[in-house]
Simulated assay, not measured.
Amino acid sequence: MRQKIMDNLFKKIAELKEKNEEAYLSIVTKTKGITSCREGAKMLIFPDGKTIGTIGGGEVEFEIIKFVKERKIEKPQTYTFNLTGKSIKNTNSEAIDINSICGGIVEVFVEPLNTKENLYIIGGGHCAVQLSEIASKCGFFVTVVDNRKEWATREKHPYAQRIIISDFEKITETIELKQSDYVVIMTPKHNFDKEVLKQLVNLDLKYLGMMGSLHKVKEIFKQLKNEGIGEEKLKKVYAPIGFPIESKTPEEIAVSITAQLIAVKNNIKEIEFSSNPLLK
Rank of each mutant, 00 (worst) to 15 (best):
P76T: 02
L44G: 02
V183H: 01
S100V: 06
N266T: 04
M43V: 13
A254Q: 04
T51P: 11
Y182P: 08
R162K: 07
G125R: 01
G212C: 10
Q161K: 14
L200E: 05
V201D: 02
I121P: 01
Q77P: 13
V106W: 01
T51W: 01
F168I: 10
K4G: 03
F46R: 04
I245S: 09
L119F: 05
F192A: 11
T258V: 09
M1H: 14
N226W: 13
G56S: 08
S274W: 00
L131R: 00
D204L: 03
N8T: 07
I101P: 15
P188M: 09
G40A: 04
S132P: 07
G40Y: 06
Q130H: 08
I65F: 00
L16S: 03
A135T: 02
K156T: 09
P277I: 06
D48R: 12
K42V: 02
I163V: 06
N118I: 04
L131K: 01
K72H: 13
T91Q: 11
G58T: 05
Y120Q: 13
F243D: 04
C138L: 11
K137G: 10
G58H: 03
I241R: 01
H157Y: 02
A41Y: 11
K269L: 11
A128V: 11
T78W: 05
M186I: 07
E61R: 14
Y24V: 03
I105T: 00
N226R: 14
D146Y: 06
N82G: 06
S256R: 07
N266A: 09
I105Y: 02
V145C: 12
K42G: 01
G104L: 00
L279Y: 06
L9Y: 04
Y24R: 06
A135Y: 00
H157V: 10
G125C: 04
N8I: 08
Q77E: 12
G212E: 09
L279V: 05
K42W: 01
L9N: 05
E117R: 11
N90K: 15
L197F: 01
K178E: 12
K17Q: 15
E195T: 10
E39P: 12
P47R: 03
I96A: 02
L113A: 08
F243I: 09
I134S: 03
K72M: 13
R162H: 01
F243G: 03
W151Y: 12
M186G: 05
T80A: 13
I134W: 06
A160Y: 02
L113D: 07
S132L: 05
K89P: 01
T31S: 09
E133V: 12
C102R: 07
E169F: 12
I268F: 14
L214A: 11
I45W: 09
H190A: 15
K218P: 08
G125E: 00
I171W: 06
K137P: 12
T187S: 03
I122Q: 04
K116R: 02
A254W: 05
T31F: 09
G33K: 04
T78K: 07
A135Q: 03
V110T: 12
R154E: 10
S93C: 08
M1Q: 12
E232D: 15
V142D: 00
Y24I: 05
G139F: 06
F273Q: 09
C127A: 07
S275W: 12
I229H: 06
L208G: 00
I27A: 05
L25Q: 10
G49M: 02
P277M: 04
L44F: 00
G123N: 06
A263D: 03
